[in-house]
Design a protein around this nucleic acid. Sequence first.
DNA 1: CTGAAAGCGCTTACAG
DNA 2: CTGAAAGCGCTTACAG
Lengths: 346, 346
Amino acid sequence: MVIVPLAFIIQNAFMPGSNITLKQLSSILGVSISTISKALNDSHEISDATKKRIVEMAKLHNYQPNKIAVGLKSGKTNTIAVVIPSVQNSFFARALYGIESLISETNFNIIVCLTKESHIKEVETFNMLSNGVVDGFLVAVSEETQNLQNYDHFTNAIANGKSVVMFDRVVDAVNCGKVTTNDFSALSEATQKLISSARQHIVLLSTIHKLNVGQQRAQGYIKAMNASGLSPKILESDDQHVGEVMTEYLNNNPVDAIIALDTDASLAALKAVKTNSKQIPEDVAVIGYVSERMARNLTPELTTINQHSYTIGNAAATMIVEAIRSKSKDMNQVVISSTLSVRGSS
Amino acid sequence: MVIVPLAFIIQNAFMPGSNITLKQLSSILGVSISTISKALNDSHEISDATKKRIVEMAKLHNYQPNKIAVGLKSGKTNTIAVVIPSVQNSFFARALYGIESLISETNFNIIVCLTKESHIKEVETFNMLSNGVVDGFLVAVSEETQNLQNYDHFTNAIANGKSVVMFDRVVDAVNCGKVTTNDFSALSEATQKLISSARQHIVLLSTIHKLNVGQQRAQGYIKAMNASGLSPKILESDDQHVGEVMTEYLNNNPVDAIIALDTDASLAALKAVKTNSKQIPEDVAVIGYVSERMARNLTPELTTINQHSYTIGNAAATMIVEAIRSKSKDMNQVVISSTLSVRGSS
DNA sequence: CTGAAAGCGCTTACAG
DNA sequence: CTGAAAGCGCTTACAG
């Protein structure tokens, strides 16, 4: 007969939802903690009979292993930090969705940290999570970090044995997994396409000229323009003033096509052309970067360069899970090609 | 003289970024682990001299306490789960931004989990994180959970001693902290405002009729319409077909105002009216739900009901941090009022 | 003022 | 096949 201590009964009676531990199960079953642990982990050392008894009792009490304790013991937390500049940008929102979808099918969790393009915030995040909290980092590098070119927090994390995968915003100088898109050639092709439809005065509108991706896209545009003997014209602004900048330019220059490099610029371009009483796409063609869903609800429907953000997120998540599980150091690079979705605006 | 074991030197020599532990510091300093722990926690038990020595050495080696170990010992993890349906919806994206902004100023971290409106996913998330991983949950209840009215995962978490705060999507039946907006009266006022500008045929367009918040808004609209002797007309659809539904109705019925309850419906309403060759706002006024930033970039600029999503997220985060810290059980409710931002479309 | 010991909830060599 | 012991990295009552 097993004597169950009174204190235990009381505790269980009054805390029905309270999480039960191996120790408590041990005193209920009259079996050692080690045996229970092994049984629940389906060790071959334990007889089928006891396994059965233990598993049933564990189920009855809704036993859930304490992840923190497992993490401390194993040195693994099964948690991945997703460090991104923002989540209000539809690219990152959808990439995060792609990441989460993949991760939720594994036994990993994700911690999301928003850097707001701040280097300090990014560094603090890495420092705070490097010690025991996460197994790896999925990061889209902040604008400020790109400008400062200070990458110690990345290399330290890697030196600490953490897996690091960069996506979209990557840094060549850091040796880690990378998932990017072909920004240069996507823009070059889109520009080429406009040129082959006899557009001559093609303007690039950007609020992301400080970012690597923005520069890559601009280079692709410039290359295509130059290749056709056309002179590139790049308008740069911030999200507050991009509309004014576009309108101002439209009022004083010939324009028959606009390529806008982000959501704000895309909406602003549509608005500026309409306000200018020009027809889209007859007078001015517009190609932009917005989500597919939004593109379909705009007037006219917007031709977009589709970055496949979900796929990028998914690929990055796949890569880091693989890296953590295999502990391999040789990191590969994946490029998810952007594609042009032609709609009414071009 | 302190004898430093060779193994330790090698380890340090070859793993410069590796996280140092109290044990290692102890062997470097020749002081016990307990003393070091107390010194680093600024205990009054330790003399200033040793404190200084210890703190300096800790800094030199960039000592960071292992959060997992601290969490296991204290039973607190300083981590909060944010469980939301999606992050592609601008409301949740911005609310998450508000949450993160508040949390990042505390010593808490957030784990973000996306339920995709699935009850099962929500339940699994709660089960998975309840045992040791998080101290509390910040949740916007999924559509499916609202329909099934199965709230056991919430009450279990609360019984397990976790703090729970619901925001935007709340469940009255669960006794926890709540942050909401005044959906009913916001719609009632917006409708009233249209009526007082002599609009008669005011249509409500919604893709969120299955959600509590959608129903509340619809009720506010109905009340205002009835109060003025007008007959309410509610068009319901999903985000794929909302445009067709609106266009179809416009083609066959008199309409002089549209209130759209979400971003998809708002863009679709603008598009449908324009396609129908009607003028906004002269022929048809449009009021919608989109972010301020997007509203300003639409043509015409959209009058919106502004939910103050950032503030809602911030308030919810404040509430749960407070709840966790104080361990108080009496949960309060906060209402952040929505406001009407009048722009060109009405 | 400092340190040894116990313990948070687990896992896993090692004995028996 | 089962269990006692050590240990993951910390904190904290308790001795000295």
